[in-house]
């Protein structure tokens, strides 16, 4: 896989905004998926097409379990992004701000120029397909230098210039850029300002246990469980388990086991019921984390 264009900070900041854990940087999003088995859910839509919810983009929302497991293992820290932005923008110097605006303009101009070049390339290709390019049709004086030596085409161009659909470069406007992240211009939030560990539901021990064994997670609502658990990246594998986390002494109906087991077997999965053994001795993991062992039971229909 190609190396990331911009390096991912370690530990990486997770933005906490109104109680949701969000990632805005596409490099970070692919990094956590590739190296930490964290998929999250893309929630970004197009502002003027908010009904379009089939192909969503950044930001990526992490569940509190995903955010917590990243923080507990030292890969990330939680940032109060609202406070961070308010303070960062207040303290920003006027000169820095102007500098940043100029930089955005420069990038926007580059984008516009690239788009123009692409459009011209496209139209030239289309014309060549129709066998028209030899006569010099569709070329503009700004970019295409091939035709310039040809006297005939120069005359031709002069005649056609006002009709040509592409704007000359002097009229090129910079594309307006909305950066997806705010550093730069703002510095990364200091780790000392990190928020405490996210509060997690009671299914968290099962999540942590399965995550430590290399499984991937997707939301489990469509199967009526906490998580659908994948043995590898969900884009490559079918899920193996419908996982539900319970407390050690939490009472459940046998009908829940039968329903989960039957549904799971129907879709070639196993229903997984698990929880933390509250009586057992806590074990210390290599990162110094004290974790009580998790007992998990896989349930399948017997076929009798």
């Amino acid at each position: 896989m190609a190396p990331d264009s911009n390096p991912v900070p370690s530990p990486l900041p997770i933005s906490c905004i109104t109680g949701r854990y969000l990632l805005f940087d596409i490099a970070v999003i692919s990094h956590v998926r590739r190296t930490h088995n964290i998929c999250g859910v893309l929630i970004g839509t197009i502002p003027n097409l908010s009904q379009q919810n089939v192909f969503l983009g950044i930001p990526l929302e992490l569940t509190s379990e995903e955010a917590r497991v990243l923080v507990e293992r030292g890969h990330a820290y939680i940032v109060n992004d609202v406070k961070q932005h308010r303070e960062g923008l207040m303290e920003m110097k006027r000169a820095d701000r102007l500098e940043w605006m100029k930089e955005l303009d420069r990038q926007g101009m580059e984008m516009s120029r690239e788009a123009l070049l692409k459009a011209e390339e496209r139209s030239e290709k289309a014309l060549r397909g129709k066998g028209l390019v030899g006569k010099g049709h569709g070329d503009t004086e700004s970019v295409n230098s091939k035709a310039e030596g040809d006297a005939e085409s120069l005359i031709d161009d002069a005649a056609k210039a006002p009709v040509a659909g592409v704007a000359p470069e002097k009229k090129l406007e910079p594309t307006f850029i909305t950066p997806t992240t705010s550093h730069p211009p703002l510095p990364l939030a200091p780790i000392s300002s990190a928020l405490p560990l996210p509060a997690v539901p009671k299914s968290y021990p099962l999540f942590r246990y399965l995550h430590s064994r290399g499984y991937f997670f997707m939301p489990g609502l469509r199967f009526g469980c906490n998580y659908s658990v994948y043995p590898g990246d969900p884009l490559r594998f079918h899920s193996h388990f419908l996982a539900t986390g319970v407390d050690w002494d939490e009472e459940f109906d046998l009908l829940d086991i039968i329903g989960g087991g039957r549904l799971g077997t129907g879709v070639k999965k196993a229903y997984l019921l698990g929880g933390e053994d509250s009586d057992a001795q806590a074990e210390v993991e290599e990162n110094g984390l004290e974790v009580k062992p998790v007992r998990a039971l896989s349930i399948e229909w017997a076929g009798l």
Binding site: L210, T265, L297
Partner: peptide, 16 residues
């Protein structure tokens, strides 16, 4: 009477 197989641990499902 219904019968379900319960494994003690994480056991991958059958692909039947």
């Amino acid at each position: 009477v219904v019968y379900y197989i319960v494994h003690d641990g994480v056991v991958k499902p059958r692909q039947n």
